[in-house]
Simulated assay, not measured.
Amino acid sequence: MKEGIHPEYQPATVSCACGHSFETRTTVGDIHVDVCSACHPFFTGQQKIVDTAGRVEKFRRKYGQQAGDQ
């Protein structure tokens, strides 16, 4: 690697709004985030798939599929 062209990495703490934090290295210092893997519904398994505005039923009506047909 060439000398003098790479940024200096320093230890930093990534802090989430939920209170979870972890250590990493970065060029910008400490980082504050709103959502992390400890509190995001996708990673925690608490994600619920919600059929908003009846999109599934609208699709079935449009293409002639009944609720029991598959």
Results as ranks from 00 to 15, higher is better:
residue 1 M to T: 06
residue 1 M to Q: 02
residue 2 K to W: 02
residue 3 E to V: 04
residue 4 G to K: 09
residue 4 G to I: 05
residue 4 G to P: 02
residue 5 I to Y: 05
residue 5 I to S: 02
residue 6 H to L: 00
residue 6 H to P: 00
residue 7 P to M: 00
residue 7 P to S: 04
residue 8 E to S: 04
residue 8 E to Q: 07
residue 8 E to D: 09
residue 8 E to W: 07
residue 8 E to R: 11
residue 9 Y to P: 00
residue 9 Y to A: 03
residue 9 Y to Q: 04
residue 11 P to E: 02
residue 12 A to E: 05
residue 12 A to S: 06
residue 13 T to M: 00
residue 13 T to F: 04
residue 14 V to R: 00
residue 14 V to P: 00
residue 14 V to C: 01
residue 15 S to H: 00
residue 16 C to D: 00
residue 16 C to P: 00
residue 17 A to D: 12
residue 17 A to Y: 03
residue 18 C to P: 00
residue 19 G to F: 02
residue 19 G to V: 03
residue 19 G to Q: 03
residue 20 H to S: 00
residue 20 H to A: 00
residue 20 H to G: 01
residue 21 S to F: 01
residue 21 S to G: 11
residue 21 S to T: 04
residue 22 F to T: 11
residue 22 F to P: 04
residue 22 F to L: 06
residue 23 E to W: 09
residue 24 T to P: 05
residue 25 R to Y: 11
residue 26 T to N: 14
residue 26 T to P: 03
residue 27 T to R: 06
residue 29 G to F: 03
residue 29 G to V: 02
residue 30 D to I: 02
residue 31 I to M: 10
residue 31 I to D: 08
residue 32 H to A: 15
residue 32 H to M: 05
residue 32 H to I: 12
residue 33 V to K: 09
residue 33 V to P: 02
residue 33 V to N: 01
residue 33 V to A: 03
residue 34 D to S: 06
residue 35 V to L: 09
residue 35 V to K: 07
residue 35 V to Q: 09
residue 35 V to C: 06
residue 35 V to E: 09
residue 36 C to N: 01
residue 36 C to R: 01
residue 36 C to W: 09
residue 36 C to P: 04
residue 37 S to D: 15
residue 37 S to P: 15
residue 37 S to N: 15
residue 37 S to F: 15
residue 38 A to V: 13
residue 39 C to D: 06
residue 40 H to G: 10
residue 40 H to C: 10
residue 40 H to R: 07
residue 41 P to F: 15
residue 41 P to Y: 14
residue 41 P to Q: 14
residue 42 F to N: 13
residue 42 F to Q: 12
residue 43 F to S: 14
residue 44 T to K: 06
residue 44 T to E: 09
residue 44 T to H: 12
residue 44 T to P: 03
residue 45 G to M: 00
residue 45 G to Q: 02
residue 45 G to E: 07
residue 46 Q to A: 15
residue 47 Q to F: 09
residue 47 Q to S: 11
residue 48 K to D: 10
residue 48 K to Y: 08
residue 48 K to T: 08
residue 49 I to E: 12
residue 49 I to V: 15
residue 50 V to K: 08
residue 50 V to G: 10
residue 51 D to R: 05
residue 51 D to Q: 06
residue 52 T to Q: 11
residue 52 T to H: 14
residue 52 T to R: 13
residue 52 T to W: 11
residue 53 A to Q: 09
residue 53 A to K: 13
residue 53 A to R: 05
residue 54 G to L: 10
residue 54 G to D: 12
residue 56 V to Q: 13
residue 57 E to C: 08
residue 57 E to M: 15
residue 59 F to I: 04
residue 59 F to Y: 10
residue 59 F to T: 07
residue 60 R to A: 10
residue 61 R to F: 13
residue 62 K to P: 10
residue 63 Y to M: 05
residue 63 Y to W: 03
residue 63 Y to C: 08
residue 65 Q to H: 12
residue 65 Q to A: 13
residue 66 Q to C: 07
residue 66 Q to G: 10
residue 67 A to P: 08
residue 67 A to C: 07
residue 67 A to Q: 10
residue 68 G to A: 11
residue 68 G to P: 08
residue 68 G to Q: 10
residue 68 G to K: 07
residue 69 D to E: 15
residue 69 D to M: 12
residue 69 D to K: 08
residue 69 D to G: 11
residue 69 D to Q: 14
